[in-house]
């Protein structure tokens, strides 16, 4: 089926990019900046998604997520660690008894080009191993062919396979390319049962951008207007500096508001962002910058 089961919402590129750029002109200083930076840490999904991942590497990541910085900075724990399915057991073991959740990327991440039965089994095994959250990818090939029903059905099936685990749906917006496509994918995923919608795998450039995230936030807002249901948002990949993270929070604040300013409804998918945010926190607390050597590697 090539037609959409809901009305298409056109997106204008120029105005979207202009609006997104306007958030970067907000000036956040001193105490509000410190609060925003700590909030950003609490929303972080620390991520390692490499072929060379081992339980040893995952342990580093988990410890970092549990205690991102020296306790005197009073920095909260990160929201989750995000790993491949084979690392879920290790991650669960290292995070036991803490607030840090374990997210697994499934459904033949990052391409999604495998039979649905494999994707569902991939998901079920990760959930059995204890994954609290599942980050799935949509089949971009099917999407770009216009097979929206297939994309929809796959998301719905994976949601079912998730059981009690939360489902984040990755669009790989760098491959969808147009804002119109991003909006269609958002509406599809939300209707198919996503708890979160997520921009990117981190394997394709461009990954998350402000305008793409804005288009997705607008889809979330429209769904809230219609149903009162709050869907979460996760920009992932490409966000490297504290300044960019704050711009995302400003955009969230002015698009969806206070109810979304929580790790339950907003996450940053990142591997290198954490230490830049921590460095800025340390500067605000200590009044000076410190060398990167003072911050632990994930």
């Amino acid at each position: 089926m090539n037609t959409l089961p809901f009305p298409r919402r056109p997106v204008d590129q120029v105005m979207t990019e202009e609006r997104a750029a306007s958030f970067a002109r907000r000036s956040i200083k001193s105490s509000s900046k410190l609060a925003a930076l700590k909030l950003a840490i609490s929303m972080m999904d620390l991520t390692t998604l490499e072929g060379k991942d081992t339980p040893g590497k995952v342990e580093h990541l988990c410890r970092k997520a549990i205690q991102p910085a020296d306790p005197r900075y009073e920095v909260p724990a990160c929201a989750a660690v995000c790993v491949y399915p084979n690392m879920v057991r290790a991650a669960k073991a290292f995070t036991r008894g803490t607030s840090v959740k374990v997210a697994a990327v499934t459904t033949a991440f990052p391409s999604g080009l495998m039979p649905l039965s494999v994707k569902l089994e991939d998901t079920r095994l990760a959930v059995e191993d204890g994954a609290d959250e599942i980050d799935m990818v949509i089949d971009r090939g099917a999407f770009l062919r216009g097979e929206y029903r297939q994309v929809f059905d796959e998301i719905a099936a994976v949601r079912e396979a998730c059981g009690n685990a939360h489902l984040k749906v990755i669009f790989e917006t760098g491959e969808l390319q147009t804002y119109d496509n991003v909006r269609i994918a958002s509406d599809l995923a939300i209707r198919a049962g996503a708890h979160f919608i997520k921009t990117s795998t981190g394997k394709v450039s461009p990954a998350a951008t402000l305008p793409v995230t804005l288009v997705m936030l607008e889809a979330i807002r429209d769904h809230f207007y219609e149903t009162g249901v709050r869907i979460g948002m996760k920009p992932a990949g490409g966000i490297r500096t504290a300044k960019e993270a704050i711009t995302y929070l400003v955009m969230l604040n002015e698009t969806l508001g206070a109810d979304w300013m929580t790790p339950d409804l907003f996450r940053f998918g990142a591997s290198t962002l954490a230490n830049d945010v921590l460095m800025q926190i340390a500067r605000l607390v200590d009044g000076r910058y410190q060398s990167a050597d003072y911050f632990s590697l994930p």
Binding site: S32, A35, G228, L252, E254, G257
Partner: peptide
């Protein structure tokens, strides 16, 4: 369904 806009972050 009301949004609580701009209440989540203070701008100094």
């Amino acid at each position: 369904h009301m949004l609580r806009l701009c209440e989540g972050l203070a701008y100094a």
